[in-house]
Design a protein around this nucleic acid. Structure first.
Lengths: 148, 148
DNA sequence: TATTGTTATACTCTATAACTATA
DNA sequence: TATAGTTATAGAGTATAACAATA
């Protein structure tokens, strides 16, 4: 995968240089996820849904909010995943309007495999760093995410 | 934007913890780019095309390879951007089969604005780090990208 | 023959607007 | 009335296969 993107420009001093690197890294990372998804006929969004529901059960609207999508988009997304036996719709027992979505056993098994593949596919990238640098990078990223 | 994703799981020791952070950071970054694109009626891919062509002129196939897309996909992508006056098709002077794609003045102006917006929207994230940590993060990311 | 790009086709993803059912 | 979800609709993104033009 190429590394070019909107930030693939002569690195500037100041914040831009870091942001260029961040954007490029993100494109590389997303390309890996996308490829792994494609190998299983899953879009990036479907991949995310499986990841999100690995340890949670959410109603349609919550899932939409999580993904930043409209609830009407979720209908088709969940429809297709349900048809493939990866997700299940369950009527919410306390709110007759709501529909909970949970991962199926088959979906959970797939999610585990996908996660392992993601780790394996990105390991070469992180493997460019020493063990100590890997720790530093993780700490820096987590600091940013905490503030987010 | 939510931070959940296929790696949004109990952080594991070893490579997985870092990779979780990398994936989450990438989703956050992509969400920003996506939002900026949407504000200008541009998909993430269109945004990338503008970024790539800021300082280059590529033929259709090269652009497709850059983006990891099929060449047939490029036709529609470039069609729409050309219709909006952001890109221009130019017949390649030395190879009668090839079509070069270049950014238009309007497209270049938009690309500059988009880039500034990207930097501005991600600055709060990187701003969570001290100046010294920002330098360290940039160096670590660039080390990974160099190996890629 | 091989390569470049487009066209035809089919799905998925996505949002908006309108609708049904429940609260 | 307000909320949860679906449906209808439309457009963009994507790939595969077949094609025309050029090398």
């Amino acid at each position: 995968m190429p590394t070019s993107d909107p930030a693939d420009q002569p690195a500037v001093a100041g914040p831009a240089g870091l942001i260029d690197a961040l954007v490029q890294t993100s494109f590389v990372t997303m390309a890996s996820l996308n490829k792994i998804g494609a190998e299983h006929d899953l879009s990036l969004t479907q991949l995310r849904v499986l990841g999100i529901l690995r340890d949670r059960r959410l109603r349609m609207t919550e899932l939409a909010d999580y993904l930043g999508l409209d609830k009407s988009t979720m209908t088709g997304l969940v429809d297709r995943a349900e048809k493939r036996g990866l997700l299940e719709r369950v009527r919410n027992p306390t709110d007759g309007r709501a529909v909970d979505v949970r991962i199926s056993p088959a979906g959970a098994a797939l999610a585990e495999r996908l996660y392992a593949q993601v780790v394996a596919s990105l390991a070469p990238l992180t493997g460019a760093l020493s063990r100590a640098d890997q720790h530093r990078l993780r700490a820096l990223l987590e600091t940013m995410l905490d503030r987010h």
